[in-house]
Write a protein that binds this DNA or RNA. Structure first.
Lengths: 204, 204
DNA sequence: CCATAGTGGGTAACAGCGTTAGCCTCCCAC
DNA sequence: GTGGGAGGCTAACGCTGTTACCCACTATGG
């Protein structure tokens, strides 16, 4: 950790790596308040309710004054995305750490699903639409994505598994499955397919 | 087809079923023109460019006159979603029909990916956000989703495979994979996992 | 043959959105 | 004690979807 050797950008493959990535974001008191209030509005009332005027109201100021703290609404939303990535990273790293060695893929998927469904609007904001990744804290995205690599042991398989999880989540959030679908069964089927793919890697 | 027996809502499991679902949508000439123009704007210039004033301009009328044909912008967008579902259904059904019996899952995924990437804005419109499914033509959604069931033979596996495909597509469209990712490899890994799951169904 | 109703256009306007310009006041450091 | 930044304010702009209301044409029924 304290070594400043080159190659420090490598990511640990061991589960139980709970340390957050470097560069913890430094925020003004007022900025932190605003992000907190914005998150509250977003999660409770939905994305449409999160307007600059509504947020300003919540803080007891006028909307234009928000621009003393954020250069744009997208700027504010980026901080919300940042928080969401930290939270989902925390929760998935913890899931790996707690699940021991048995069926880590399923437990990772269950954890991811639970988090997303309990923060639907935040999840949608953080994952929908293009991402300006160069403005995120360095290493955050990799750190948040690391659990998927840990449980699969392969980069392509990790991305595919994460894609499956995201697809399942976002379609469930958007009520895209036909009514009466057995969603638990769908998640289990997906998990089973990937668990088989991991124990028997690249047979072809 | 012409039998009016009850139970006609069942969906054929045989590949090669290219018939579109019943209830072909009937549209006024002007409505069809508007939807066509809207699709043009959407696909060429993106979702932000598709405004009521912009669409009206394209048709040589004023924006409020559009409300003689649509009750709201969401109403217009629903027709675009309808068209997108017909198109993606056509293309995936045809993929099954053409691919014979070898590696239907991979060819379905490849086809789905190709269609989505060549109509990114239409695909996003049709799949992002909640869907008011009761206003879609009856049977359209089931018909468009049928290929996923055909190649897996199982409802849960079909939904999981479709979820994987959607996740892969939407994350690729939104540039969510880290730069330098081997996306072809990611798609192949996902396809391989599901192909194994199909040939060895539910071993546990 | 005329009246009537429906279809499809137009203009004016409203509320809400993100955002900018410009002003003012307080507090702190030099 | 005196700048100067930090953080508030009001007014306003251009854009969005949308409504109200008016008008011309066309077709149909008595």
């Amino acid at each position: 950790m304290t070594t400043t050797a080159t190659g420090g950008s490598e990511v640990s493959l061991l589960p139980g790596e709970l340390d957050r990535p470097a560069e913890p974001p430094i925020r003004t008191m007022r900025v932190a308040e605003a992000v907190s209030a914005a998150r509250q509005i977003l999660e409770v009332e939905g994305a449409d309710a999160l307007t600059m005027r509504r947020l300003a109201d919540e803080m007891g100021i006028q909307a234009p004054s928000l621009y003393k703290h954020f250069s744009s609404k997208a700027d504010l939303e980026l901080l919300l995305i940042e928080d969401a990535l930290f939270d989902v990273g925390d929760v998935t790293h913890r899931a790996l750490h707690d699940s021991g060695h048995n069926s880590t893929i399923l437990s990772l998927l269950v954890t991811y699903r639970a988090f997303s469904l309990s923060h639907p609007n935040l999840y949608r904001l953080a994952t929908a639409g293009p991402l300006v990744r160069q403005r995120l804290p360095h290493g955050l995205e990799e750190w948040a994505g690391n659990p998927w690599f840990v449980v699969t042991g392969d980069a392509s398989l990790a991305q595919a598994l994460w894609s499956l999880a995201h697809g399942l989540v976002i379609l469930e959030l958007d009520d895209r499955y036909p009514p009466g679908s057995d969603l638990d069964g769908t998640w289990r089927a997906g998990a089973a397919a990937f668990e088989r793919a991991v124990v028997v890697p690249a047979t072809s």
